[in-house]
């Protein structure tokens, strides 16, 4: 296939882009949420008009932003401010605002709505102690669990995390500074994986999705400051009788590939489980096949580290989009492998 170029490029503030998420709330309008570093705040990009529909201002550099189905946006900044913002037209109203300690690099992990039957908004952010993470119920501003690694683990800071529900048990995946990935049983505040180090360097980013063949298992891809990209598979078995004794499972490494240049800053799996995208320190976005990790495309557009990549759901009249945000202040939007 021939070369490829972005559909369009978005740029409004001269600020580095830190996080991107597609958001289609109850309204028909699909948005692209973009958070910026420095004091850039968060933009809601209207994908039809290609303009910012709403801007959430912030003094501190933003780490992450996430849009809830209920029409709220959750933002998290470097000073540890975790906010729930209601969007009303072009107006943004803070609903909840709470301060968390030790915000470093780790983005806030929100349990996606479709995982959760309850109305609570569950978010994981770094906790008081080194290496610890707290899971909050944001609506009620209440800490549900504190995930403090047991003695003997020297993990460093948490770098990235994800919350999922497995058989209606809340499970957190966290990647740490020393290259370890851990799986937590959140309710019981217990580690349920062996805690092997996957990398020699910090886990920079990972993404996971359910294994359609096996209900309780996930596929995941993770990458680090090294030049390696790993695909793993993990099973989580909660025995029904003793909910307390969840089994400890390994991350099974299915495939490992090496790139020429080290450092992957961002990684996402597309929801149809066909491709994954990585954004690297070498300014390039790479597309790999989900199954075999075969390289499919290299998107050369940005001139700064690609901090974040995001896939949209299949949007009407847009298809499935890929948005990449970079330190060069630009957001490029691409259309790839749309059948």
């Amino acid at each position: 296939m021939s070369d490829i170029s972005p559909e369009y490029v978005l740029k409004r503030l001269g600020k580095p882009v830190t996080d991107l998420n597609f958001w289609s709330s109850g309204s028909t309008q699909p948005f692209l949420l973009a958070s910026y570093g420095e004091n850039g705040g968060v933009d809601l990009w209207d994908l039809k008009t290609k303009r910012s529909a709403c801007h959430i201002a912030s003094h501190a550099p933003m780490l992450s932003c996430y849009g809830m189905n209920t029409g709220e946006v959750i933002t998290f900044d470097k000073e540890g401010q975790l906010k729930l913002v209601k969007i009303r037209g072009a107006e943004a109203v803070n609903e909840v605002c709470l301060s968390t300690p030790n915000a470093g690099f780790c983005k806030a992990a929100v349990l996606p709505m479709h995982f959760d039957s309850s109305n609570a908004i569950k978010v994981a952010v770094p906790g008081e102690e080194m290496s610890s993470m707290n899971v909050w119920d944001l609506k009620n501003t209440k800490i549900l669990s504190r995930l403090i690694p047991p003695d003997g683990f020297k993990l460093g800071m948490p770098m990235c995390s994800k919350l999922v529900n497995v058989h209606s048990n809340l499970v957190a995946f966290i990647g740490y500074e020393d290259g370890t990935m851990l799986k937590w049983d959140v309710t019981n505040e217990k580690v349920i994986s062996k805690g092997e180090r996957l990398f020699d360097e910090p886990v920079m980013t990972f993404d996971l999705c359910n294994d359609t063949a096996l209900d309780s298992a996930q596929f995941g891809f993770c990458a680090s400051a090294t030049n390696e990209l790993i695909k793993w598979h993990v099973e989580t078995n909660f025995s029904k009788e003793a909910n307390l004794n969840s089994k400890v499972e390994d991350f099974q490494i299915m495939k490992k590939i090496s790139l020429l240049n080290p450092g992957i800053a961002s990684l996402k799996i597309r929801s149809d489980k066909k491709i994954i995208a990585t954004g690297g320190w070498d300014y390039k976005v790479r597309i790999f096949s989900f199954k075999s990790l075969k390289p499919l495309a290299v998107l050369q557009y940005h001139t700064g580290t690609v901090q974040t990549v995001a896939f949209s759901e299949c949007l009407q009249s847009f298809g499935q989009l890929l948005a990449c945000g970079s330190n060069d202040n630009k957001i490029s939007v691409w259309k790839l492998y749309n059948s």
Partner: peptide, 17 residues
């Protein structure tokens, strides 16, 4: 390999960054 039905784009030559 052929399990992947996706055809790759032209991959540029890898160069040290």
């Amino acid at each position: 390999d052929s399990d992947d039905e996706l055809t790759p784009y032209n991959l540029p030559e890898e160069a040290a960054f």
